[in-house]
Amino acid sequence: MKNIRFWLHWLLVTALAAALYPFPVLLRVWSNGAQWTAPVMTAALAGCAWLGMLYILLLRRQYARHPKWINGGVWAITLLLCVAGCLFAPYPARLAQVLWGILAGGCFFGSARLVFHPLEHLAHPNVFVGLCLWDCFTGFLLYLSHAKLPFVPVMLLFAANAA
């Protein structure tokens, strides 16, 4: 049963990170970045989310004994990812780099905290309604930016959220 819970957490964390795809597209449009940045940065967000989940799952025995150390590690890695994202994001605009750094740290921190919740809370319909609203909001901002969205990833994203 624990193995199934791990894979369900992995699937849900991946879905949550993939739902952020319109935001890297928006950052690419606002900063006039290269075409490859949106899918690569979305994959990096999924990687940050997986790191956060695995950090807690690998150290859960130590968490019972030393919760302050593990929580301090979560905060330290979150800050490190924020700074690294701000410094090394491949966007030409500084604001886009800072926003992506905050998003990378947020993905790590959020997925580290999601592990503590039961799967019923993660698969709650309100979570996916929030994801669809987020996608609609960023899609609207992209529309206002006069950007052409790639059709297939956006349709797959909405289909996954609706499912």
Rank of each mutant, 00 (worst) to 15 (best):
I56T: 09
P90Y: 04
A44E: 07
L80G: 06
W50F: 09
T78A: 05
L103S: 14
W36N: 00
L59V: 07
K68S: 13
L87E: 10
Q62V: 11
A104M: 14
G47P: 00
Y63R: 12
V98N: 01
Q35P: 10
L99N: 01
Y55C: 08
G105Q: 02
G106H: 10
L45R: 08
L81R: 02
G47R: 02
A104L: 15
C107N: 13
G101V: 04
L59G: 07
G73N: 05
A49H: 06
I70E: 07
V83Q: 04
L58E: 12
A96H: 03
W36P: 00
G106Y: 15
V40I: 13
R94W: 12
L54A: 11
C107A: 15
I56F: 14
L81D: 08
L57M: 13
I70L: 15
V83M: 06
R60D: 09
L51G: 05
G52F: 01
W75I: 15
T37L: 06
L103H: 10
A84G: 07
G72V: 11
P39V: 07
A64Q: 15
N71C: 06
A89L: 04
Q97D: 13
G47W: 03
A38V: 02
W69C: 09
Q97H: 07
W50T: 04
W50E: 02
P90E: 04
P92M: 06
T37A: 06
L81E: 08
L59N: 14
L81Q: 01
P67S: 03
L103D: 12
A96Y: 01
T42Q: 06
R94S: 08
N71S: 10
M53Q: 11
A76W: 07
F88Q: 10
Q62Y: 13
P67T: 07
A89C: 05
A84V: 08
C86E: 10
L99F: 11
P39S: 05
T37E: 10
R61G: 04
W69P: 01
P92R: 02
I70S: 04
A104C: 11
C107F: 12
V40G: 05
P67D: 08
R60T: 10
I56D: 03
L58M: 10
C86M: 14
L79V: 12
R61P: 00
L79C: 11
C82M: 15
A84L: 14
I77H: 04
T37R: 00
A38G: 03
L58Y: 12
A46W: 10
V74I: 15
V74P: 03
G105W: 01
A89S: 15
T42S: 13
L54D: 09
C48S: 07
W100F: 15
V83D: 04
A76M: 11
F88M: 11
L57C: 08
G105S: 04
R94H: 08
I70M: 10
A38H: 01
I77M: 12
R65G: 03
T42N: 13
A84H: 07
Q35Y: 14
V40W: 11
A44R: 12
A93N: 09
P39M: 06
G72H: 06
W75Q: 11
L99Q: 02
L99G: 02
